[in-house]
Design a protein around this nucleic acid. Structure first.
Length: 593
RNA sequence: GGGGUCGUGGUGCAGCCUGGUUAGCACACUGGACUGUCAAUCCAGAGGCCGCGGGUUCAAAUCCCGUCGACCCCGCCA
């Protein structure tokens, strides 16, 4: 076995030569990153996965090599043999780890040529994403892109090492499975052997991991692809990767520290950062009240403050009526927001309306008094209002009156947007928290029934169990989300492990017994054979890696991602198939009406 | 399904508002010069269906309509 025609073997990588190697004869293999031709002297920066090494082609060393190097172009694949030498004084490159030395080339081979590139491989140049994705294999040669996949690899390993050390068993579950109701749209796979029937790709291994608990595996995990046929975002792809975990015999407060330990280990190994534990916990109601969202970004303040009582029965009719009708007035203090122009403030009003509010009241706190479209209505509550929001001259106050949770969520969006705009978000900080005590169900107006907030297998809190019969909307679930910098990074729950409770839940959700039997009777049956108490979580691996890499979009940390329309510019998937394939499956295409 | 931004040589952009030269700049590319560069430099050159289709006009990269595509957002995502 030889690495190249002629029997050369790579002796070092392009990232490892140092002053200590001076005098050694080495063989490097890699890509010609850049060539600098001085006529009498040619420099080629040879790049491989590990780094960059300057190779010098000097006719005094080898006229043949020097002549050959003139043919070299960007991204030619080279094998280079020569002597490591210290660079002449004054020509060292402190920007390169290998910058103290260079390889004086005595002979080299062109292992392969390359066409001119469709785009430059420099890190700093911005190239349209569709072009990058069409030539993703070239894009990935950029050190910045490679770095993201090194981080991803470190995350895989940290997760596996940690969970294995904690006694978790790694198990694979099927991709070809059956469609389940609720949740996202399924990707369907037609069956040839059972014509007219379809597999569904899993939205998550939810049911299987519960079966593994019934099986007595006790601690399971899997780094697994999940599929959801919904519209894409920068943090959502049709196929994405979850760290899926399930445990037996642990209640929430025993389980969450295990997950915290995993996150701590990942952040420690990848970023050298020690996340403080335990992670703070926020009840869902509290998160909504203080931040106007169930995934609060804790890197900055701008907390929402309830001002409802200040306006109850007051002369500001618009607000007083909302409060009288059971709604709330939520306030947000924008410190130093004074410079916001009338146009900015009008923009905020529009944004609030766009988010569903009937309106937004802004108040400038000037040294000589309040300035607002509704100043005269505010005079009566001026002092308590300023005190409630801890306002100071130069601030801007934003007030939204509406039903809860709308009043809070509207202001929550403005909070996020203003933090961005006013540069209040520290760029290199990680703030992690748990959001717990989610509602179990919420009323769906359009379907006229209760919907599971998390999923139908989530257990209600024990003390809320009676509420299922009397006031389901007030029942809280044993569910939890892990939120990092305002992003949902993981979500899970303690499951229902008693068949009677599960059936009650289905009944509440309007899933008829026959339908439940038909759809996942196998799970209900399993629950009758001694199912242990169980609970787990699923973490979005792509989002974790993006956070660790400082990338905005998970596409930057997925090897071959899809565009926003779900296509792959590289393979041109999805694509029509051969009529014979359709015939095998018993599928006939119909024209759109 | 809806809203927004964008689409101009291989890449990144300018020109478009206010229609009228040979569509301009940088990088890449090709040829030449050059023995210490590292975003090498200098000289010369080639390269354009201005996304696509229609309309207005004497005349369209530019104005209008439609359409396709990329990205961001809303809806959607248990």
């Amino acid at each position: 076995m030889t690495a190249t025609p002629g029997g050369w073997r790579r002796s070092h990588t392009c990232g490892e030569l140092r002053a200590a190697h001076v005098g050694q004869t080495v063989t490097l293999m890699g890509w010609a990153f850049r060539r600098r031709d001085h006529g009498g002297l040619i420099f080629v920066d040879l790049r491989d996965r590990e780094g960059l090494t300057q190779c010098v082609f000097n006719p005094a060393t080898s006229a043949e090599a020097h002549a050959g190097a003139q043919e070299v172009r960007a991204e030619f694949v080279l094998a280079v043999q020569g002597t490591v030498q210290r660079r002449p004084p004054g020509t060292e490159n402190p920007k390169l780890p290998t910058g103290e030395v260079e390889v004086q080339v005595s002979q080299f081979r062109i292992l392969n040529e390359s066409k001119p590139l469709p785009f430059p491989l420099e890190d700093q140049t911005e190239v349209e994403e569709a072009v990058r994705l069409k030539y993703r294999y070239l894009d990935m040669r950029r050190p910045q892109v490679l770095r993201n996949f090194v981080i991803r690899d470190q995350v895989y390993r940290a997760v596996r090492d940690y969970l294995h050390a904690q006694g978790f068993l790694e198990v694979e579950t099927p991709f070809l499975t059956r469609s389940t109701p609720e949740g996202a749209r399924d990707f369907l796979v037609p069956s040839r052997l059972a014509r007219g029937s379809f597999y569904a790709l899993p939205q998550s291994p939810q049911l299987f991991k519960q079966l593994l608990m019934v099986a007595g595996f006790e601690r399971y995990f899997q780094i697994v692809r999940c599929f959801r046929d919904e519209d894409l975002r920068k943090d959502r792809q049709p196929e994405f990767t979850q760290i899926d975990i399930e445990t037996s015999f642990l209640d929430r407060d025993e389980f969450l520290p295990i997950v915290e330990g995993m996150l701590v280990e990942v952040w420690r190994r990848v970023r050298g950062i020690t996340l403080p534990t335990p992670f703070p916990r926020l009840a869902y109601d509290e998160a909504l009240a203080r931040f106007g969202t169930d995934k609060p970004d804790l890197r900055f303040g701008l907390e929402l403050v309830d001002c409802s009582d200040l306006f109850r029965g007051g002369q500001f009719q618009a607000f007083a009526q909302v409060v009288a009708g059971g709604g709330a007035v939520k306030g947000l203090r924008v410190p130093g927001g004074g410079p916001l122009s009338r146009k900015d403030l009008d923009g905020l009003v529009e944004a609030a309306k766009g988010a569903g509010a009937k309106g937004l009241v802004w108040v400038k706190v000037n040294p000589d008094g309040l300035q607002s479209p509704v100043t005269k209505f505010l005079e009566a509550v001026k002092q308590p209002l300023l005190a409630r929001l801890a306002a100071e001259p130069g601030d801007v106050l934003l007030l939204v009156a509406d039903q809860m949770p709308l009043a809070a969520t509207v202001l929550g969006r403005l909070r996020q947007e203003l933090a961005q705009r006013l540069n209040l978000v520290p760029p290199h900080e990680f703030r992690v928290c748990w959001v717990i005590d989610f509602p179990l169900v919420e009323w769906s107006e359009e379907e006229r029934r209760w919907d599971a907030v998390h999923h139908p297998f989530t257990a209600p809190r024990d003390e809320d169990l009676p509420l299922l019969d009397t006031d389901p909307g007030r029942a809280r679930a044993k569910a939890y989300d892990l939120v990092i910098n305002g992003q949902e990074a993981a979500g899970g729950s303690i499951r229902i492990h008693q068949q009677a409770v599960q059936e009650k839940m289905f009944k509440l959700l309007g899933i008829a017994p026959q339908e439940a039997r038909a759809r996942f009777g196998f799970l209900l049956e399993a629950l009758e054979f001694g199912a242990p108490p169980m609970g787990g979580i699923a973490a979005g691996l792509d989002r974790l890696v993006a956070l660790l890499a400082g990338e905005e979009s998970i596409r930057e940390v997925i090897a071959f991602p899809k565009t926003q329309k779900g296509t792959c510019p590289l393979t041109d998937a999805p694509a029509p198939v051969d009529p014979g394939q359709l015939k095998d499956l018993g599928i006939r295409l119909v024209e759109e009406p």
